[in-house]
Write a protein that binds this DNA or RNA. Structure first.
Lengths: 201, 201
DNA sequence: CAAATAACCTAACGTTGTTCGGTATTATAA
DNA sequence: TTATAATACCGAACAACGTTAGGTTATTTG
């Protein structure tokens, strides 16, 4: 698992320390105020020293985005396993889990929102380790089980996209326009999603 | 309409020139790379000179956001007048207009996405000149016409919110994650929205 | 033990947003 | 019309930023 040489181990360790510090800093001051120099101060390095571990500030952000993607993937996958009802029910829970992740790990979410997918065409394969893939898989299971019907120009990918857009909208709205709105959106979100999924049957 | 004194007129004019220059700059280099000094270079002012017209860089962004809000409002309102079918049909077109605005005037849209609403509670009144108000009005018309049914914990505001989240998700996804995806999303968006609205009947 | 590599720092460069002090220019009031 | 006040504008500076170059020390490898 960990690299053999002590040096490589130390390297990996401080790399993680830098990342965790950066994450905490984002939590404190927000993504747009993330400062490489402040990270350096907190890990007790000179600004230049960090460049031994990351190519640039953007590199740190990239690494954190990947980690966030991994965590979101994990959050979504754990839903699929822990329940045992209809597939559509899974779907709703997964959708709500997406929103939950956005709200409670917003340090990660705001990072990830700015990164484009490398898939440029419907013909290209879906990245297996993407949240989208998890949704797609579940939608396909729902179709196979007859819980969701496909239509003209509205196959599994289109359905998955629309669900993703729905929850992504709920999440981003909550974090931006509605950031100061005092209310629990979970019931409304759940109901909306259930209604939409019902219309796909 | 315009202020009486020549000085005030000139002031307003260069203010607009600054805003337009800033807008063009955002179009060129993106919001995150907007530079006050570069704006100053292009309008042939010293950086300090701009502070006679705006309190800060943020002030310029604020002004542009307001203008964007005005334009979005106009785009949405024009839908309502030019058509003459069912209210639900209006709604779909208005939703698609939101996405259209986001894609074709993304300089404005990206600005606006970062600004929080001042409404903090469901009890506070809705700002009349907000896109949300336009949607809400139309949803209420649809309810009054019997095209949409309200439910427990799912009144006009909740329905409007869910629609807004839906289209906002479609718009932001298209501009971030799916920015390089080569496809026309309009048919899928339309179909999704029609299905969702049908489930509200 | 020598050579090579990795780790780290100081100093600097070119940016950025913003403020201060001063100088013109224009409008207002006597 | 002239004195006073307000506006418009700029040069210079400040503090902060991301990044790079060059150099020094520590560690690993041959």
């Amino acid at each position: 698992m960990s690299s053999r040489s002590p040096r490589q181990r130390r390297h990996e360790k401080t790399k993680q320390e830098i990342l965790q510090t950066a994450l905490g800093l984002i939590k404190e001051v927000g993504f747009e105020n993330l400062s490489l120099r402040e990270i350096a101060r907190r890990v007790d390095y000179s600004p230049a020293g960090l460049y031994e571990y990351f190519d640039s500030k953007e590199g740190i952000i990239q690494a954190l985005s990947n980690e966030g993607n991994r965590q979101l993937l994990e959050a979504l996958s754990s839903i699929q396993k822990n329940q045992s009802r209809s597939v559509t029910c899974y779907l709703v829970e997964m959708c709500l889990a997406y929103i939950d992740f956005a709200l409670h790990k917003r340090e990660y979410f705001t990072l990830m929102s700015n990164l484009p997918s490398e898939r440029t065409t419907i013909d290209e394969p879906v990245r297996a380790d993407s949240p989208y893939a998890v949704y797609l898989e579940t939608v396909q299971a729902a179709i196979a089980g007859g819980e969701i019907q496909i239509r003209e120009n509205f196959g599994p990918e289109e359905i998955t996209y629309s669900l993703w857009a729905f929850v992504h909208g709920m999440a981003t709205l909550r974090l931006t326009h509605l950031m100061h709105f005092q209310a629990n959106f979970e019931p409304v979100n759940r109901l909306s999603l259930e209604l939409y999924l019902a219309s796909l049957a």
